[in-house]
Amino acid sequence: MGLFGLFQSEEDKRAEEIRKGTVAPTRAERQKCWASRDLFYACLDKHNIIDPIKDEKAATKKCSSENAAFERDCAAQWVTYFKKWRVQDIQKKARLKELEAQGAYKMDVQTEFAPKKD
């Protein structure tokens, strides 16, 4: 930050703290982060990129603005976590599809929070 730190507004300071993980995000900040993440995911889907860490070059080239927004709105740790999570989630879904094709019985297990309160 150096000199620029002096001219930072309250809002920028807060965003910076979230990125560095010094403070935990509030509900609104979490939702902002998740929204940016979903936009980034959508862009990767569009360009058939599964792993944004392995295919970093392609990801930053094709989805540079989405990536920048994602990194701006989320903590650095969360960015890495969500990038890894995407790969796992895609693999999980593919595996489930494979099992379903083989005629596996799907158990009724809910992993999503059903009715959103807000």
Binding site: G21, A24, R27, R30, W34, A75, Q77, W78, Y81, F82, W85, E112, F113, K116, K117
Partner: peptide
């Protein structure tokens, strides 16, 4: 509190 996705969901 720094939990990215599961804990907030579960706390809701």
């Amino acid at each position: 509190t720094h939990c990215p996705d599961i804990c907030p969901d579960e706390l809701d």
